[in-house]
């Protein structure tokens, strides 16, 4: 029953792409900013987080893993602008480094999950038949697991740590992407040029990658932006449960675990700032994603 909407996305994406290319990149960007103030705001947040993550080493005033036992649980001050946690670590520095962890996990999981889902979804639509049938059944199985439960199980098997958390979040994202892509690809498949390409004797790989994939890019991009947000939230949840990134690596979800909760009354800054950081980042990504979708596909505004 979800076939209808993505179908339209794909077609609309096709139509939209042509005139856009004529304008210069800068023009497109300026136009985007003018039309999508909220999206620009979101993009600004994402950019700030990126800059923070990349240049954490220069921005952070302290080593994020350095304990200062003389300054434990200190309220925000000039020395520690966001205060220190219960182990005497500078919260601001941990937040800045945490941005790196969040973005690494968020983008890697979203892109890997998205890319695998894209290829599988398009191939499934293209080949049809038994492959498609099997693929659908596998999707059904994976989709029946709530994201966090599947991620938890994967972490249980492979262990904790940044890489495994990425893996754990990637796996549940694959079917979510695969399903949407397959639906839009099914629609693309009916368009005559795919038949034409086949008639010309192109190989499967070439048809899938060169002809079908580009045409499902619009819904894919929109989904990807949602995935990044989801992945960051999932990482935070896993870390909060103690099953994600492990101490002493600075990560926002981890900063909310243990001490933050224990001292939420007496030292609220320990809990407040990491939560705000997660919220702000995902908010930025969502706003940007919404604006991106509106720009790519006006017909689907605000979905």
């Amino acid at each position: 029953m979800t076939v209808v909407a993505p179908n339209r996305v794909a077609v609309a994406g096709l139509v939209e792409e042509a005139p856009e290319r004529k304008r210069s990149l800068l023009g497109v960007a300026l136009n985007f900013c003018r039309r999508q103030p909220l999206g620009t705001f979101g993009l600004a947040i994402v950019v700030v987080m990126f800059v923070a993550g990349i240049s954490a080493g220069w921005i952070a005033p302290y080593d994020p893993e350095e304990n200062d036992f003389n300054a434990m649980m200190e309220a925000p001050s000039w020395a520690h602008i966001l205060g220190t946690d219960q182990l005497g670590r500078d919260i601001f520095s941990r937040l800045v480094y945490g941005a790196r962890t969040a973005l690494i996990v968020g983008f890697n999981a979203a892109f890997m999950g998205g890319a695998i889902g894209l290829v599988l979804g398009v191939s499934s639509a293209y080949f049809g038949g038994l492959f498609d049938l099997l693929f659908q059944r596998v999707l059904d199985v994976l989709m029946a697991f709530p994201l966090i439960i599947l991620a938890l199980a994967v972490v249980a098997v492979f262990g904790t740590g940044v890489f495994n958390v990425i893996l754990a979040i990637t796996i549940p994202l694959i079917p979510r992407c695969g399903r949407v892509v397959r639906a839009s690809a099914l629609a693309v498949r009916e368009i005559p040029y795919v038949d034409a390409a086949r008639a010309l004797g192109f190989g499967h790989a070439r048809i899938v990658l060169r002809h079908m994939v580009p045409n499902v890019v619009a819904p894919f991009l929109i989904m990807l932006s949602a995935f990044v947000g989801q992945a960051i939230l999932a990482e935070a949840s896993l870390s909060y449960l103690g099953l994600g990134v492990q101490e002493p690596v600075p990560a926002w979800g981890l900063m909310l675990q243990g001490g933050a909760e224990e001292y939420a009354t007496t030292a609220p800054w320990i809990a407040v700032f990491p939560g705000l950081a997660i919220m702000l980042t995902v908010l930025g990504i969502s706003l940007f994603g919404d604006a991106l979708r509106d720009a790519i596909d006006p017909k689907l505004r605000d979905r």
């Binding site: 947000g229 939230l233 935070a236 949840s237 909060y240 979800g253 909310l256 933050a260 909760e261 939420a264 009354t265 609220p268 809990a271 407040v272 990491p274 939560g275 997660i278 919220m279 702000l280 980042t281 995902v282 908010l283 969502s286 706003l287 919404d290």
Partner: peptide, 18 residues
Amino acid sequence: AIAGIATPSFWLGIMSLV
């Protein structure tokens, strides 16, 4: 609405309890 999607629910829980 977007803030609702962006807020980790466990953090909201911790904060609301306090």
